[in-house]
């Protein structure tokens, strides 16, 4: 029994499975983004380049490790590890193989929200600790950006919880299963707001402001190389899994069995679809400027989010 639990935590649906999923989704994202632009994307490593993210990861691990002399060494070393570990931890809360997650407690939704905030804080520290102009600008932009999308995101994420009368992600999934409905059907506005906020959380176009290549090199990531960069990239991939898992769990029914398709397979299909939407969306826009982005979030997204909360409180979509 203990052995099985360890297997669950480490292999399936725990760490190993999630990491494989992270690499797979990076491939999905890159491939789709490339196809939209008329390119092939990864092509040579494995069938259709599916192993390219793994190859990139291994390549980065073996690269020279450069530490800027001026950096704050402790932070500089610690942040990449934490950045990769945090979304991995948070993913244990997500129901992946069954409507019940490995770890679930009343209020874990709050923990997820908190971990999003923490991710941004880590980004800020990463940029700050590297003591370079581009990194500093990138991290300040990242913090500013968080200030603008965090509030609509928090408001809207509470709506499914209100409807399901549970502050646990697993609880919300089970509520959807019990009522044979999807959160998206009840709260389409909420889903739209969440998708926009998540584009910002993941720093994808049009909100890739903190790492705008043509403006500030690689933003907060500029000074990171080798294994630290590899960890950041893996952290980013895990974050994509986390975000799409959250969207799927709260709005798209989560990991539920459908006829003979097991819950885990449904989860993978649904999250892959969410990732595809993200990568398609990021091909369609130009980048906003930071002031335009903040203004837009406060002026348009926040009222919409509030409206969603009001609707749910009035009993619509609950």
């Amino acid at each position: 029994m203990v052995a099985y639990e360890i297997f669950q935590l480490v292999v399936f649906p725990g760490a190993l499975f999630v990491i494989c999923l992270a690499f797979l989704y990076e491939w999905v994202d890159r491939k789709l983004f490339a196809r939209v632009q008329g390119r092939y994307g990864p092509l040579y490593t494995g069938p259709a380049g599916i192993l390219q993210p793994v190859a990139d990861f291994l390549k980065l691990l073996s690269k020279e490790d450069i530490v800027p002399r001026a950096c704050d060494a402790n932070l500089f070393f610690a942040v990449p590890v934490m950045y990769a570990a945090l979304p991995l931890t948070a993913l244990f809360i997500m129901p992946i193989a069954a409507p019940e997650a490995l770890v679930s407690f009343e209020g874990d939704l709050i923990f997820i929200l908190f971990s999003f905030g923490l991710m941004t804080l880590l980004i800020f520290l990463a940029g700050w600790s590297s003591m370079s102009r581009f990194s500093a600008i990138g991290s300040v932009r990242s913090a500013l950006q968080m200030l603008s999308y965090e509030i609509p995101l928090g408001l809207v994420l509470v709506c499914p919880a209100i409807a399901a009368r549970s502050l646990s992600v697993s609880g919300i999934v089970q509520w959807q299963a019990a009522n044979a409905t999807w959160g998206a059907a009840l709260q389409p506005i909420g889903l739209a707001v969440v998708m926009v906020c998540m584009l910002a959380e993941l720093e994808l176009v049009p909100f890739d402001i903190p790492e705008a290549e043509t403006e500030i090199v690689a933003g907060w990531r500029t000074e990171f190389t080798g294994r630290r960069l590899a960890l950041f990239r893996m952290g980013r991939d895990l974050e994509i899994v986390l975000v799409s898992a959250l969207v799927v769990s709260l709005y798209l029914g989560g990991a539920q069995q459908l006829w003979l398709v097991p819950a885990a397979a449904m989860f993978v299909i649904k999250t892959a679809a969410v990732v595809a939407v993200f990568s398609f969306a990021r091909a369609l826009f130009a980048r906003f400027r930071i002031d335009q982005m903040i203004a837009g979030m406060w002026k348009y997204l926040l009222p919409i989010a509030v409206a969603q909360v009001v609707l749910v409180q009035m009993g619509l979509g609950a």
Binding site: V36, V205, A283, A286
Partner: peptide, 16 residues
């Protein structure tokens, strides 16, 4: 200019 504005898709199309 599309690339500078972060609009990579237009960049790819124009160059194609």
């Amino acid at each position: 200019v599309a690339h500078e504005a972060g609009f990579d898709t237009l960049f790819m199309y124009a160059w194609r």
